[in-house]
C-alpha cells in the first residue's frame, strides 16, 4: 500500500489561546516496500503526521459534521487536504477506519507501557479479537496459532512467555510483546514511533534487526520515527525530515546526509559515519559511501588495498 499525503495541516486546540500548529501543508509520498525513516525534533510534527496514517487523527473532511465551505468573494481557499493509504481515502466520510487500522499497525513510543493483559497471550490477542469481523468469533485454534506466530516472529519463546504476566518480563521482552500485539493482525504497513528509545545499545540493535526481519516477512512497509541519525542511516531506504510542521526534505539517507550544513542549520546532527567522511574529505580523501558502517569500512579497506598496490 502506497501512502500519499497532500496539503495536510493540523492545529492542536484550535481557536483557543493554546492553539499550536503541528502540521503546515505537508505533502509526502511513501512507496510500498520502503523502510522509511521520519526524522525531526520534538514538536516538528512527525508524531502528528503518523497519527494521521491510521486515522487516529482524522482529516476534517472525514468528520461527520464537516460541510464544504464556500469561498467568500475574493478569498482563495487552501487546497483540500487529502490522504490516501492504499485504496483507503482518509478524507472521505465513508472510509472504514477499523479496516484501515487493521492494515496500518501502529506501535507508539514506549509501547510496553500500554500492556494490560493478565497473560502475554491475552494481551497479544487483544488486537486480533478487536479486528475480527463482527458476529464471527475467532475459533480458539485460529487465535492461538496467530498469537503463537506473532510471539515467535518477535523472537520470543511462545512456550516460555505465553502464560506469564506481561509485567513480569524484562523491558526488552515487554517491548517485543507490545510489538507482537500489533503485528498479530497482519498489518501491511507497520509504523513505529521511536522503537529503540530507552534501550541499551544491544537492545537497540536487536530491535532494529527484528524490524528488518518483519519487513521482509510480515509487513510490506515499515515506517520508523527516530531521533537517532545513525539508526536512520543504517536502516532506512528513504527518509523524510520534518521541521516546524513541514517536510523539509524527502530523500534517501545517502542524499540527505550529504546536506550536512543544512541539517546543522536546523539544529540536527548527522550520522557518525557521515562525520568521518566529512573529516576525511577535509584531508583530501573522498569516500563515496551510503553512510552505513558496513559500506564505509568496505570502501576504506578497498582504498587502503588500492594504496598498498600503488
Amino acid at each position: 500500500m502506497r501512502i500519499v499525503a497532500e496539503h495536510l495541516s493540523y492545529t492542536y486546540n484550535p481557536n483557543t489561546p493554546f492553539a499550536a500548529a503541528a502540521l503546515k501543508d505537508v505533502s509526502l509520498c511513501i512507496e510500498e516496500g520502503e523502510f522509511f525513516g521520519i526524522i525531526g525534533h520534538t514538536g516538528s510534527g512527525k508524531s502528528t503526521f503518523i497519527q494521521h496514517l491510521n486515522g487516529l487523527i482524522r482529516l476534517p473532511s472525514s468528520m461527520k459534521k464537516y460541510r464544504e465551505r464556500k469561498p467568500k468573494r475574493g478569498e482563495q481557499l487552501l487546497p483540500r487536504p487529502t490522504l490516501r493509504v492504499g485504496s483507503y481515502d482518509l478524507s472521505e466520510k465513508t472510509t472504514d477506519f477499523r479496516a484501515l487500522r487493521k492494515s496500518v499497525g501502529m506501535v507508539f513510543q514506549y509501547p510496553e507501557h500500554q500492556l494490560f493483559g493478565e497473560t502475554v497471550k491475552e494481551d497479544v490477542a487483544f488486537g486480533l479479537k478487536n479486528f475480527a469481523e463482527k458476529g464471527k468469533e475467532l475459533s480458539k485454534e485460529v487465535e492461538t496459532s496467530a498469537v503463537r506466530e506473532a510471539i515467535e516472529a518477535v523472537g520470543l519463546n511462545y512456550g516460555e512467555v505465553a502464560e506469564k504476566s506481561p509485567f513480569d518480563l524484562s523491558g526488552g521482552q515487554k517491548r517485543r510483546v507490545a510489538i507482537a500485539g500489533v503485528i498479530v493482525s497482519r498489518p501491511e504497513i507497520l509504523v513505529l514511533d521511536e522503537p529503540a528509545a530507552g534501550l541499551d545499545p544491544l537492545g537497540k540493535k536487536e530491535i532494529m534487526e527484528l524490524l528488518h526481519r518483519l519487513h521482509k516477512t510480515w509487513c510490506k512497509t515499515v515506517i520508523i520515527v527516530s531521533h537517532d541519525m545513525d539508526e536512520i542511516a543504517e536502516n532506512c531506504t528513504m527518509s523524510a525530515l520534518f521541521a516546524e510542521g513541514t517536510v523539509k526534505y524527502c530523500l534517501s539517507p545517502r542524499e540527505l546526509f550529504q546536506k550536512a550544513e543544512e541539517l546543522f542549520a536546523l539544529g540536527l546532527d548527522i550520522p557518525l559515519v557521515a562525520k568521518l567522511c566529512r573529516a576525511l574529505d577535509e584531508r583530501g580523501i573522498h569516500i563515496d559511501c551510503d553512510y552505513t558502517a558496513a559500506d564505509f569500512v568496505k570502501k576504506i579497506l578497498a582504498l587502503k588495498r588500492g594504496e598498498g598496490r600503488a
Partner: peptide
Amino acid sequence: ERIQNAQKARGAD
C-alpha cells in the same frame, strides 16, 4: 490519551 490511542490502533472501540 496516549494509551487510548494505542489501544484504538489495536482496534479497541
